[in-house]
């Protein structure tokens, strides 16, 4: 079967869908996840540099041991029971988002990283990218042209996303 066509999330995504605490991954079901707590912050800007408010950012990541809470991960039974690995945030009037999370461990064959998705009015297909903490050997990072890899490396856990134009964030063709 052919997968359904995407469409923009539009300007009217209900604010209530950004549940209170959805950007805090360190607590699940009232219990604290294991590992180092970090805060990831950044701004999301369109081509002319304008900051975008109420843009939706979602993340997906491994736990402190580099394990995904998902049955396809062979180590899934050992995943931290108090860590879901998913979060959602909306940008504020300055175009900034913030997540409180656990620094992910490096999954097998990968550098430690966090998957990002961006959804907004005028974005016709979800934009997917990946944030790294440092450069190194990683198959997804190495698939990015070398001169653009630097835009995927967070600095002091700050990860800015430029949708288009100068210093454009690399997005993946999935």
């Amino acid at each position: 079967m052919i997968s359904t066509a995407e469409a923009t999330i539009g300007p009217f995504f209900p604010p209530r869908y950004v549940d209170q605490g959805a950007n805090d991954l360190t607590v699940f079901d009232g219990r604290k996840a294991r590992g180092d707590v970090i805060e990831i912050r950044g701004r999301v800007m369109q081509e002319d540099g304008t900051a975008l408010e109420n843009l939706i950012v979602e993340i997906w990541q491994a736990d402190t041991q580099g394990i995904y809470r998902h049955p396809a991960d062979p180590r899934h039974a050992q995943a931290d029971a108090n860590f879901l690995g998913w979060g959602r945030a909306a940008t504020d009037a300055q175009g900034s988002y913030c997540f409180r999370t656990i620094k992910p461990g490096a999954p097998e064959g990968r550098l430690a990283h966090i998957n990002f998705m961006v959804m907004f009015s005028g974005i016709m297909r979800i934009l997917k990218t990946t944030m790294y903490f440092e450069e190194g050997s990683d198959p997804v990072l190495l698939s990015v042209p070398s001169e653009r890899r630097k835009f995927l490396i967070a600095k002091n856990n700050e990860f800015n996303i430029r949708l288009r134009g100068e210093n454009e964030t690399p997005f993946f063709d999935d």
């Binding site: 081509e47 005028g122 974005i123 016709m124 698939s143 042209p145 997005f171 063709d173």
Partner: peptide, 12 residues
């Protein structure tokens, strides 16, 4: 035209 990438998307 302001919010979608200009650079080619990266295949992985």
């Amino acid at each position: 035209p302001l919010r979608n990438p200009k650079q080619p998307l990266v295949k992985r």
